[in-house]
């Protein structure tokens, strides 16, 4: 019952093509999370198996309840490709809204549009201001000298999903996906819906990540000086602390969090990266 409720609330359907993640999520909520192992790197280390998910089974009820406020503020609009077609049809008003793009100078201009024209962006990325609108909205923009163009939500919005591992990572690289986490049974990737479709055509099984939002791996990077600390920081490691070990005075340890795409980059640049078990932190 609890598991059903959990999945009903959480699953986002993609045109009926993606498998429902009920089974995996139920397993996970019962504490049967697959062991996480990062593979593929030279410095592969074993990761604590009883890390992040073990507590979820015990506290599944609390988890479901605490999830409700978050679900309540999940983005709701008809321009994002995150709702199934039935829901989309039900929410359409007299003006059919689509995703459009205008070019702006910077974030201040985006803020002015929101303030003066009362049009909120769906996404601002670089010089692109994406909004959900129709003829009326576009007319307003045109009056101010903008040139709205139709945008493809499947290319604009990204998802973070799990895909079952298949072969090497060449397909991911070819499609330009960001490899967020590399687990034993699956990869966590960031991709547009169009990229995901392409992946699906290649035979990959795609699942929602559900409640298991990706968290950075806890890592230790060994460097020789503070300049290297700064260099490592620029490569995507979220530095928690930097410590000089007492015995090896020539080495500095950086402790931090990083996703696999950043770890790959660190290793490519010659940094020695060790994967640690999850942070002790505060237990629920």
């Amino acid at each position: 019952m609890l598991c059903n409720a959990y999945v009903m609330n959480d699953t986002i359907r993609y045109e009926g093509n993606f498998r429902n993640s009920l089974t995996d999520q139920c397993k996970r909520s019962a504490g049967q999370d697959p062991t996480q192992v990062r593979e593929g790197g030279k410095n592969m280390k074993k990761i604590s198996a009883n890390g992040r998910f073990a507590h979820l089974g015990v506290l599944s009820l609390a988890f479901v309840l605490s999830a409700l406020p978050a679900l309540a503020q999940e983005p709701k609009d008809e321009c994002r490709p995150t709702r199934d077609s039935v829901q989309q049809a039900a929410s359409q008003d007299s003006e059919k809204k689509k995703l459009f793009r205008i070019e702006i100078e910077d974030a201040i201009e985006a803020e002015l549009i929101t303030q003066q024209l009362k049009i909120k962006p769906q996404l601002v990325e670089g010089r692109s201001f994406y909004y959900c609108g129709g003829e009326r909205t576009n007319k307003v923009f045109a009056e101010y000298g903008y040139d709205p163009t139709l945008a493809d939500p499947e290319e604009v919005f990204s998802r973070v999903v799990r895909i079952a591992r298949k072969g090497n990572e060449e397909d991911l690289r070819d499609l330009g996906l960001t490899l967020v986490l590399r687990e034993r049974e699956f990869w966590v990737v960031r991709a547009t819906l169009r990229q995901l479709r392409a992946l699906q055509k290649l035979g990959y099984t795609i699942k929602e990540i559900g409640r298991d939002e990706p968290r950075p791996r806890q890592i230790r990077v060994t460097v020789r000086n503070l300049a290297q600390v700064e260099e490592a920081g620029k490569l995507g490691i979220d530095i928690y602390s930097v410590a000089r070990p007492q015995k090896e005075r020539e080495a500095i340890y950086i402790y931090g969090g990083a996703f696999d795409y950043a770890i790959d980059e660190l290793e490519k640049r010659g940094f020695h990266v060790e994967i640690l078990s999850g942070p002790e932190g505060v237990k629920p």
């Binding site: 962006p121 950075p216 979220d238 969090g257 996703f259």
Partner: peptide, 13 residues
Amino acid sequence: YTFDDTYIGSSAF
């Protein structure tokens, strides 16, 4: 990247 710890949000403010 939305999953990063320094994710900037979908727009300013």
